[in-house]
């Protein structure tokens, strides 16, 4: 399995901590696996909570009208890339 980049690991830690995923280790999240539905099995409330934590930690808002959203929430890798891009602005 492909290892996580340091930033992906940071986002994975935020995810596990925010959503109280007691039986998931951040370093074991597969970066390309879906976060929602299958894969990690998150739901839309988890998505909101994650979005709130991201905005608190990295200082930008994920917005519902963002066309990118489906992609952003697709996987840990996609989410991490999106945060890095937004932060750089």
């Amino acid at each position: 399995m492909q290892p996580l980049s340091p930033f992906e690991l940071e986002v994975a830690r935020l995810l596990v901590e925010t959503l109280h995923l007691e039986d998931v280790k951040p370093e074991e999240i597969a970066p390309e696996e879906p976060l929602f539905g299958e894969g990690l099995g998150l739901d839309s409330i988890d998505a909101l909570e994650l979005a709130l934590a991201v905005s608190k930690t990295y200082g930008f808002q994920l917005r519902s009208d963002d066309k990118e959203n489906r992609r952003v929430f697709a996987s840990l890798r996609a989410l991490s890339q999106h945060i890095e891009q937004q932060r750089a602005r």
Partner: peptide, 13 residues
């Protein structure tokens, strides 16, 4: 509709 990840972002707004 409930179910899509971004659904509740819209609700919050």
């Amino acid at each position: 509709p409930i179910g899509r990840p971004e659904t509740l972002l819209a609700v919050q707004e």
